[in-house]
Write a protein that binds this DNA or RNA. Structure first.
Lengths: 213, 213
DNA sequence: GACGGGCCTAAGCGCTTGCTCACTCTCCGT
DNA sequence: ACGGAGAGTGAGCAAGCGCTTAGGCCCGTC
């Protein structure tokens, strides 16, 4: 399920279709550097060095260092939005769709945790207009998750007293995977996705009504 | 419940006992600046300016900019650890103790979200030995939460197939409050704490066994 | 075979950074 | 009265920053 049309297999980052080759290498280098040290602690010399070129070469492909961050942030946010929208529009019960959304969203954050870290934790460094653009995508993501939860409440399948707050909590839980996930760690992206899907179903009270005393 | 011995009432930050006065103002200024812009984007001139003094005055009270971050990070981590340890050692059922831990931990992250943001998201900027020291405190926090969950599992009160993973998820959920919480927003720290305590009890299956088909 | 565009580099410009230095002011014990 | 410690300042240094410039190599096209 959820097979990628291209860039399949062990493809590390979703930057396979950037041309020319040097620009792609720059984005990859920037993702690694931004994720490891943060945007402000990363120098253009560092990015260019990792991409195997001189500092000046960066400015042939990108106008500024911030544009590089913008590119990463924009593509990453759009990718994350696609994932939850696909789950929202899929067939099945609200519980199935919510589990699908969480599983895929978490898996993406774990598998691409370098990119996701930049996407989720460096957006404060964006220029104001770029920041606004990215915030709009985030709101859409929030809306997609909320609509699944609302569907479940309307159908009587979920027990959620505070839909807005619970939506924030669910998204927050998933996003934070990018912060702590370690590729060399104990769990695989698939395992974390499955665990989190189950936890979120419990959070929304989707696994049957409780036996109240 | 949970009354603070000093610095009570609307005290904004837990820095009331730092002397001399100028050093306290510097810490407060640094917390605000680091939280808003990040450690690396904050200049020593900015910190000194917010504290109402010249750039050179900073170095009378702190050896480096990093030492300022270390001070904030260390005190913040110890405060957070105290909170969960107090809940772990309190009386009551595992569910009551877990709810108490989450409520207090979340409330602290919301109420002091500026400090918490620095504590949780700027630790990568610490010097290596300071970083190691702080990581040790984090491990203790993780251990405290895990031991409450283990108690609940042993007592048959919780239904948690993956204790380690669920502990990470619970802590992650609580920590991330510092990222999104906005003092001018819809919810108060108390409301978020109550909401999250309920969500976590559901995550560990503490609210009664489900009616399985 | 001259040419122009795409891609790249060495050198470096103007500026900001974390931090230091020489010095002043205020306060307090003797 | 006065010396010394604590607390603060204005000026500025060395290093590093983002980014620019001038020029060179390589290529397909006329």
């Amino acid at each position: 399920m959820d097979a990628e049309p291209k860039n399949s297999g062990g493809g590390i980052e979703p930057w396979g279709d950037i041309t020319p080759d040097a620009a792609r290498r720059l984005v990859g280098a920037a993702v690694h550097a931004f994720a490891e040290r943060g945007y402000h602690a990363t120098t253009t010399r560092d990015i260019a060095g990792r991409a195997g070129m001189s500092p000046a070469a960066l400015y042939i492909h990108y106008k500024t260092k911030e544009e590089l961050l913008y590119q990463i942030s924009k593509v990453g946010h759009e990718r994350a939005l696609e994932i939850v929208e696909r789950a929202r529009d899929s067939a099945g019960t609200p519980a199935e769709r919510l589990a699908r959304a969480v599983r895929a969203f978490v898996r993406w954050h774990a598998e691409h945790h370098m990119t996701a870290r930049v996407v989720q934790y460096e957006l404060g460094a964006l220029a104001e207009e770029h920041h606004a653009e990215v915030i709009a995508v985030r709101k859409a993501t929030d809306g997609a998750v909320r609509s699944i939860i609302e569907d479940g409440v309307k159908a009587g399948a979920f027990d959620v007293p505070d839909v807005r707050g619970t939506t924030v909590a669910v998204l927050s839980l998933c996003i934070d995977v990018a912060r702590w996930f370690n590729a060399a760690g104990r769990s695989t992206p698939d395992e974390v996705g499955d665990l989190y899907a189950g936890l979120v179903l419990r959070m929304v009270g989707a696994d049957g009504p409780r036996q109240v005393p």
